[in-house]
Simulated scan of single mutants.
Amino acid sequence: MKIIGIAQRYFEGGREAEFFQLAQEGHYFINLWAAHMLIEYGKPTPELQAKVLDIIKFHSATYCTPGNTVNRVVAQPEDQWLDDYYKRKNPVSCN
Score class of each variant (00 low, 15 high):
21 Q>F: 12
21 Q>N: 11
23 A>L: 09
23 A>H: 09
25 E>A: 03
25 E>F: 09
25 E>Y: 08
25 E>R: 12
25 E>M: 08
25 E>C: 02
26 G>P: 01
26 G>K: 10
26 G>I: 07
26 G>F: 02
26 G>M: 09
26 G>V: 05
30 I>R: 10
30 I>Y: 04
31 N>T: 02
31 N>M: 06
31 N>F: 02
31 N>K: 06
31 N>A: 00
32 L>N: 11
32 L>Y: 08
32 L>H: 07
32 L>F: 10
32 L>R: 07
32 L>C: 09
33 W>D: 09
33 W>H: 12
33 W>L: 15
34 A>C: 11
34 A>P: 14
34 A>Q: 14
34 A>M: 15
35 A>P: 02
35 A>Y: 00
36 H>N: 09
36 H>E: 11
37 M>N: 10
37 M>C: 07
37 M>H: 14
37 M>L: 15
38 L>K: 03
38 L>M: 07
38 L>S: 00
39 I>W: 08
39 I>K: 04
39 I>T: 12
39 I>F: 08
41 Y>W: 10
41 Y>N: 09
42 G>L: 05
42 G>E: 06
42 G>W: 10
43 K>A: 06
43 K>N: 10
43 K>P: 02
44 P>M: 01
44 P>W: 03
45 T>P: 10
45 T>A: 12
45 T>K: 11
45 T>C: 06
45 T>L: 08
46 P>V: 10
46 P>C: 09
46 P>Q: 05
47 E>H: 04
48 L>R: 00
49 Q>H: 08
50 A>T: 13
50 A>P: 09
50 A>Q: 13
50 A>S: 12
51 K>H: 09
51 K>M: 13
51 K>W: 06
51 K>S: 11
52 V>H: 05
52 V>Y: 07
54 D>W: 02
54 D>A: 15
54 D>E: 15
55 I>N: 03
55 I>D: 00
55 I>C: 00
55 I>P: 00
56 I>K: 00
56 I>F: 00
57 K>D: 01
57 K>N: 04
57 K>T: 00
57 K>Y: 00
57 K>L: 05
57 K>W: 05
57 K>M: 05
58 F>L: 10
58 F>W: 06
58 F>H: 13
58 F>Q: 06
59 H>D: 09
59 H>F: 15
59 H>G: 04
60 S>V: 03
60 S>F: 03
61 A>I: 02
61 A>E: 14
